[in-house]
Computed example of a mutant assay.
Amino acid sequence: MEARFLGIAELTRTPSVAVVVDVMRAFTVAAWAFGRGAEKIVLAESLTDALALKARHPDWVALKDGPPAPGFDAVNSPGLLRSLDLGGRTVVQKTTAGTVGALAVREASLVLCAGFVVAGATARLLRQRGCEAVTFVVTGEEGRAEEDLACAQYIARRTERGGPDATAFLRRAAGSRAAAELTEGVRQGAHPDDVRLCLELDRFPFAMVASSEDSLMVLRPYTVPSPSPADGTSA
């Protein structure tokens, strides 16, 4: 598989297959939302759009980066979200980087959103679909976020037979600027367990596929069967 690693601003054309990576914290949060029973996640263009969707659908759960704010039900923190019961609910998510990256490649034939918590399932789906060329969108820090790049490179390597050991990739993410800011309380709307939860490899058995539905970009879980022993540890 040919892999390219680009920041959002470096996307000069729409890729055929895109994996949008936001480890800390958008797509870790999205995975936890599905883990807590959410049916789908609508990726909002802006905070205004998120609030407008919430106003039209009062039963939807709206979340954003940063501290709590009027009109929003939750913040972009896996540690805080894991206590919510989202059974059958629709979540509206707007974040600084992750949702922006996904919307930037919305015209791609296949859009996956990923973090370490769904790395294995994401790699399995790429293999299952026979993807020959994949663009990994590194959303944080204008494409330089170490945690996102490490995760993207890990997923790319994991599509290969045999696969890599995750230790070095997780260590890079743990030493990232984002991890430090979360640990030191620089980022608002955080929980002390956020970094640990973001680095929990393969916590969930599904990949997350984004596609257009009624003019909205909608993220849904897609369960990918685990490999048989004959497949080794590659995915």
Rank of each mutant, 00 (worst) to 15 (best):
L125R: 08
V134E: 04
E160L: 15
G120D: 14
G88W: 13
L112P: 06
C113K: 01
G71S: 12
E132Q: 15
V92F: 03
R106K: 15
R127K: 14
T139Q: 12
P67W: 11
L126E: 00
D73L: 09
I155T: 07
A114C: 15
G163E: 02
A97G: 11
L112V: 01
L126N: 02
L81F: 04
G115L: 09
P70T: 07
A97C: 05
R89L: 06
L80H: 10
G115T: 03
G71E: 09
A119R: 01
R82L: 11
G79Y: 09
D85Q: 09
S77P: 03
V137K: 00
V138I: 15
A108C: 14
G79C: 07
G115E: 10
E141C: 11
G120N: 06
E146L: 15
D165P: 12
G87N: 11
T159P: 01
R171Y: 06
P164Y: 12
L86R: 02
T122G: 13
P164D: 14
I155G: 00
P68S: 09
Q128R: 13
R157K: 12
R158P: 00
L170K: 03
N76Y: 05
A104Y: 13
V111I: 13
R127Q: 13
G101W: 04
A166F: 11
A150L: 14
Q153L: 09
E160S: 14
E107S: 13
V100L: 13
N76F: 03
L80F: 06
R89H: 07
A121V: 04
R158N: 11
R144T: 15
V134D: 08
G98P: 00
G143N: 07
F72T: 07
L149G: 01
A145F: 02
F72A: 12
A145S: 07
D85S: 12
G79E: 04
L81T: 05
A121E: 00
R124L: 11
A104Q: 10
T99H: 02
C113T: 09
F169N: 06
R157W: 03
F72Q: 06
F116M: 10
D165G: 15
A108D: 07
R161D: 11
A150H: 04
L126D: 08
P68A: 12
G87A: 08
E132C: 10
Q93N: 10
A133Y: 10
D148H: 00
C113M: 02
R129T: 08
F136V: 08
G88H: 03
A145C: 12
G66V: 09
T95F: 13
L125W: 02
L126M: 07
G101F: 03
E107V: 05
L110Q: 10
S83C: 08
A150M: 07
L126W: 05
Q153W: 05
A123F: 06
L86T: 08
G163H: 02
G66T: 10
A102P: 11
D85M: 09
A123S: 15
L103T: 06
G66C: 14
C113G: 15
A114M: 04
A102H: 11
P70W: 10
G140E: 03
G87Y: 11
A150T: 00
V75M: 04
P68V: 15
A166E: 12
L149A: 10
G162C: 13
R157V: 01
A166M: 08
P164I: 10
A168R: 15
T90L: 01
D165F: 13
E132D: 09
G101V: 07
G71K: 09
G101R: 03
G79V: 10
A69K: 14
E146I: 10
L81W: 01
G79A: 04
T122M: 14
